[in-house]
Each structure stands twice: as structure tokens, then as C-alpha cells.
Amino acid sequence: MDGKLRELLDISENDFDVVVRITREEDIAIARQMAKQLAQELGFSLADVTKVATAVSELARNIYRYAQTGKIMIRKRLEESGGPTIQVVAADRGPGIESVDRVLARGYTTHERSLGIGLPGVRRLMDFCEIASKVGTGTVVRVEKRRRKF
């Protein structure tokens, strides 16, 4: 787990099509917009474009809310075996998550203005979701969605 987190935190920005630094509240909307654009370029359906944009919105807000600063990195993958895929990595060096299982369960939150449906929602919207986190080191969430066949 520790090694995985280190590896993901040090992942090179150069491998991504878009990197959005999250430092202000407005950056959440910027990240969402960029994700939407890349999903459109990959030929995702309108509903799937909205799902990707919404998921990125949740990830960016979590960074802003719990770690204050961090980054959202997005890339298009055309050569994946399952078809064209969009990959998003949300990384921060914030406080970290005590129990990953708990944040993935609906209804868990440490924030007063939340119902705890952000991360579980992201997992349902995307095809793949992986979280690596350590208290005091940071959190990396990696998600993917492939273009549906029909």
C-alpha cells in the first residue's frame, strides 16, 4: 500500500494530456470542464461525458475541501484493450484517509456540508476506481472510464 501510494504520488505529469492544479474553489469548475472536453474528444456519449465531468468535480472538491491543494491529471488512452478510455488521477499531499473502506461506504463523511455520497458515487460512475492513501502522507485516487460499445 505504501509503495503504491509513493509510486502514484510521484507519477509524472508529462504522461498526461491535462494537469489542473487545485488551489482555489474555481479550479473545481476548471477541472470539470477539462474532463468534459477530453471525454467529448474520445467520442463518449452525452450521458457518459456528464458522468466523467461529475466524477472529476467530486474528486477536485475532495482535494480542495480536505487537502486545500493538489492536482487533477487527465489523459486519453486509445490503445487500451477495452476500447478508448479516459484516465483521471487526483493526487494530494493532504492529511490522508484513515480507512479507505469507510469512505467508500455510502453515508460516511467528516464534513458538515456533505451526505458522504461523493466517493462512492465516483466509484459507481466510473468503470475502475482505486484509492491509495496514508495518514500524514497524502491521497491518490485513480479512476477510469472506457467508451461504451453502444
Binding site: 456519449s45 452525452l46 450521458a47 461504451r148 460499445k149 453502444f150
Partner: peptide, 12 residues
């Protein structure tokens, strides 16, 4: 799941 989602999108 692919077919169900495609159906949902067309229906909506």
C-alpha cells in the same frame, strides 16, 4: 451493463 446503459440513454 452496456446494453442496459445504452437503452437507458435512448429511453431518457
Amino acid at each position: 451493463s452496456d446494453r442496459a446503459q445504452g437503452m437507458a440513454e435512448r429511453l431518457l
